[in-house]
């Protein structure tokens, strides 16, 4: 039972990090109608910035700040230089141009940093594990990540729901021409939204990179998971992204843990673990297919 709760926490943690990725993707799609494959590169940039600054200064916190700043800056530059030309293009052009950006960012980073993964150390104040009520031992840093993820989620909902920028964003999602007529500087709004999404991706990259590793190509598996998240949640919906991310995070974690033991009930152990692991790797895609059959527009999607 304790084990199950610990695994739920792990699922929650990976789900919240996915949410940080998916939120930016879904905002950019909702407001600008753009599909951005290079979002994973921004995640990678955040992680590398954190690793670089943390190694130079010895402070993880400066590294984290640098990751957010670097990803936001990279996002803003890319938006102004490239993405801006793509808003009126069809999705194929967007896919290809952002695919080209992935090649440029990945190979460029490899050029600068080489191929060997970098490893970040958890800051001393958050290292080790704590005992939670009920006697669960849990990594303090992972707990902090869960807290940070929840805070960002709340902040994002407040930003979209309560501020003037949020009003503009929501107006932009509903009707792009209208907000231009209202005298909003659309160019600036788009750059801002894009940079915000990039900053969230960069932050996720730094946090996840600290637990795992920082390397070229780290953003791509996460990007595809984030796509699954927003397809499940409904494209353009922040609420959908949150629900989708938690669903995917929990399905993935629990599938990996539970499926092998389920198969163990009626199969030989070695075969069960290997079949279970194979199916677990497909679990989230099966979840996505099921959601699509029931609701082709995603759980909270406005349009299909």
């Amino acid at each position: 039972m304790l084990l199950l709760i610990e695994q739920l926490l792990n699922g929650l943690q990976s789900g919240l990090m996915l949410f940080l990725m998916a939120a930016g993707l879904t905002l950019v799609f909702g407001v600008m109608g753009l599909i951005n494959l290079a979002h994973g590169s921004l995640y990678m940039i955040g992680a590398f910035a954190c690793a670089g600054v943390a190694a130079a200064t010895g402070s993880f916190w400066l590294g984290l700040a640098a990751s957010i700043a670097a990803a936001a800056a990279a996002g803003a530059i890319v938006e102004v230089a490239v993405i801006r030309r793509l808003y009126r293009r069809d999705h194929l052009d967007q896919v290809l141009a952002t695919f080209a950006l992935i090649l440029i960012f990945s190979e460029g980073t490899r050029w600068l940093y080489g191929s060997f993964p970098l490893y970040l150390n958890v800051p001393p104040s958050l290292s080790g594990s704590v005992t939670l009520p009920g006697g669960i031992q849990y990594s303090l840093f992972r707990l902090a990540i869960i807290g940070a993820g929840l805070l960002v989620a709340v902040g994002l909902f407040l930003l979209i729901g309560k501020t003037r920028i949020g009003v503009q964003v929501r107006a932009g999602e509903a009707d792009r021409e209208m907000i231009a007529a209202l005298g909003v500087d659309i160019g600036r709004l788009y750059t801002l939204v894009f940079a915000l999404g990039a900053a969230l991706a960069g932050m996720a990259g730094a946090l996840v990179g600290t637990i795992q590793s920082v390397q070229v190509g780290m953003g791509e598996p996460v990007l595809i998971l984030a796509f699954v998240v927003i397809v499940i949640g409904g494209i353009g919906s922040i609420k959908g992204a949150l629900v989708g991310a938690l669903l995917v995070g929990l399905t993935d974690t629990m599938g990996r843990v539970l499926l092998p033991s389920i198969f163990d009930l009626f199969m030989e152990t070695s075969a069960a673990t290997s079949v279970g692991a194979a199916l677990a790797s497909m679990a989230i895609y099966i979840l996505m297919a099921l959601v699509l059959i029931v609701k082709p527009g995603g759980l909270f999607g406005a349009r299909a």
Partner: peptide, 21 residues
């Protein structure tokens, strides 16, 4: 216990919990 992880997996929280348990 015998556990197969995914190839290229980078997060082992779930497995570490199982090992502890």
């Amino acid at each position: 216990s015998e556990v197969y992880t995914q190839l290229g997996q980078t997060d082992y929280a779930a497995e570490i919990a199982q090992i502890r348990d």
